[in-house]
Amino acid sequence: MSSNAYWYIGLSIVSLLVLTIALARAKSLRAVFHVFMMTQMAYLIETVIYIFGSSYFYRPGFLKDSAYFDSNMGALTSNMLVIPTAALVIAVYRLRWKGIAVAIALIGAIEWLWVELGLYTLNWWRIEYTAIGLTMYFPFARLVYDRLRRPAAGILHSSLLFLVVAPILGTLHIVPIMLVMNRSYDPGWFGDPPHDTTAFSSVYYVVMALVIVTTMKIQRGHTWVKFLAIASFIFIVTRVLLATELLRIHVWWDPWYYCLFPSTAYLLLKPVSARLARGG
């Protein structure tokens, strides 16, 4: 492990401590939902600017075999911990523009320090762009948190449900690939195979999340039938991807894992749909 990793670990620990305090202060399940939702919003933004836009590159030094997968580990620190935690703090403590400005300045200072220490490399991206983005992201986080108090229905309910489900699927999809390289995707979008795998994964998990949300919204049908239907659908998709050589599987357990964990997520997260419909 390189010295860079300790900076990322330290930032992650601080974020987890702050997140724990904010969740304890909120004493509400909607705060947990909010963390997932804002994580997914960060994931979607990162998909556009980092994965497909090649805006910057993280250098945490966790993984030696692949620089891009190592960069992804740094991206997880930012998008799964730092940014959603700051969003929850702003929402729970109802911080207004002065508090939001302090949060943006702090994150900008961290970004600047990371660049100076060689922990993070900017390509065409600028720290000012981060500040501009956060001036929209953080107020949106407050709106989402307040909206979760009230019942949701229709497209809004589906959207909120997607934002809860998707980051769980996305994280469980890509983390094993980065750590043990159990599968790889080859769409031919980029010259670097790990970059290609990450990019295709970012599309794949969104599609799977939409499938699961759609299944949750269907009122008729037994839960276990839907469980099997999701697993069967993913099995068919897997066979198609293998046949077209978009997918390569490197370990025996991979198909079992990718067929079963989305179905299991459907079972475990199904109550979230009812809770969002009730609000509170």
Rank of each mutant, 00 (worst) to 15 (best):
H250W: 10
W124E: 00
V180D: 05
Y129T: 04
L172N: 05
F233A: 14
V203T: 04
A141P: 07
W114H: 04
G61K: 02
Y58T: 03
I174W: 04
V211W: 09
F57K: 13
E116V: 04
A265W: 09
A243P: 06
F233Y: 10
P271N: 09
S66N: 07
L161F: 13
K217S: 09
A265S: 15
F69E: 08
L44N: 08
M38S: 01
V102F: 00
Y129W: 14
G74Y: 00
Y205C: 08
N79P: 09
V203D: 03
P262T: 00
V18N: 04
S71T: 10
L19V: 10
K27S: 12
A31C: 06
L161V: 08
V180Y: 06
L260W: 02
F33A: 01
L143F: 15
F162H: 05
S158V: 10
H250R: 11
E46N: 14
I9E: 02
T171S: 15
V48E: 10
S55Q: 10
V213D: 13
L17M: 09
G108Q: 12
R149N: 13
A26M: 06
P84Q: 03
L113N: 00
Y8G: 00
L210H: 07
L276Q: 05
A87R: 05
T77A: 14
I100C: 00
G279C: 09
G170R: 08
F190E: 05
I9V: 13
G154K: 06
W97M: 02
S2I: 11
L88V: 08
I90F: 08
Y258A: 00
I177R: 07
P262K: 04
A153C: 12
L44T: 01
K64S: 15
A153M: 09
V175M: 13
V18F: 07
T85R: 05
G99S: 06
W189D: 03
R239C: 10
A166F: 00
L242W: 11
M80V: 15
L16Y: 06
D196C: 13
N4E: 06
S55I: 06
T223C: 02
A153N: 14
G170K: 02
L148H: 03
F233P: 00
L29W: 15
V213F: 12
A24K: 14
V211T: 12
